[in-house]
């Protein structure tokens, strides 16, 4: 009797799998683990090339910390909005969930607009993907992050307009949870990028020329 009662109390949906985790959610987490290596490689490339550019503009001449701080804050708050959207979906309030999904998409778009502004400014100041190592590594790393944000915005908009119309099913709640996990991952990648490339890397300047560098290595 007691066992029956326990079973009825258990309203968390148990997926029909060995691990109790639905296939899709496990897939998403494996993908995120894999994506760690993807962004890790780009960030490591950036770090290997710190202070190696032979021509300007250098990070200390061009990075705009106040603007980026604002866009970082926007992305962080979009993460908060995302978690609220998932939370309200889990509580079965469709309207609030939809509101917060659209809020996330809006904040993500604002972040992308900040990035477009930043890129345009940099290009106008002479930093392109070809100008030096800093330009190459910076644009490609933040560009791929921006691409992830863009895909996330598309995903969320698709969800807001295709799925979140009628009554919620456990499947559509999980759809949103997965989009949320992806979104938070994009956010934590930015947490690392903001700290490592903007705040710590702000003072990076001109590198030693190849000959000077070789001399330093040999001399040291």
């Amino acid at each position: 009797m007691a066992q029956v009662a326990v079973k009825q109390e258990q309203h968390v949906h148990v997926a029909d799998t060995n691990t109790g985790i639905s296939n899709r959610k496990l897939l998403l987490w494996v993908f995120l683990a894999s994506d760690c290596l993807f962004f890790g490689s780009f960030i490591a490339t950036y770090l290997v090339y710190r202070n190696q550019s032979t021509t300007g503009p250098y990070p200390n001449e061009i990075l705009d910390i106040p603007i980026t701080s604002v866009s970082t804050f926007v992305l962080l708050m979009s993460s908060l909005a995302m978690v609220l959207a998932v939370n309200y979906a889990q509580r079965n309030s469709v309207g609030l969930a939809r509101f917060w999904i659209l809020a996330v998409a809006a904040l993500g778009t604002v972040f992308l607009l900040f990035q477009i502004y930043e890129f345009t400014t940099f290009v106008n100041e002479g930093l392109t993907i070809r100008s030096n190592l800093f330009g190459t590594t910076f644009f490609i790393l933040t560009g791929f992050h921006g691409l992830h944000v863009f895909i996330g915005v598309l995903w969320l908009l698709g969800m807001a307009f295709a799925h979140f119309k009628g009554a919620l099913t456990s499947r559509s709640v999980e759809d949103l949870e997965m989009a949320g996990l992806y979104w938070h991952f994009v956010d934590i990648v930015w947490i690392i990028i903001f700290t490592v490339i903007y705040l710590i890397g702000f003072s990076d300047g001109e590198g030693l020329s190849t000959i000077e560098h070789a001399a330093a290595v040999v001399g040291g």
């Binding site: 691990t19 985790i21 959610k25 987490w29 995302m82 949320g180 934590i188």
Partner: peptide, 25 residues
């Protein structure tokens, strides 16, 4: 990073296997 992963991505409330998967990567 840890706070977002633990609470926003609710690994703290989720199955341990998922933490293992993400942590390994």
């Amino acid at each position: 990073f840890v706070v977002v992963v633990a609470f926003f991505m609710h690994l703290r409330f989720d199955k341990n296997l998922l933490s293992l998967v993400f942590a390994s990567g």
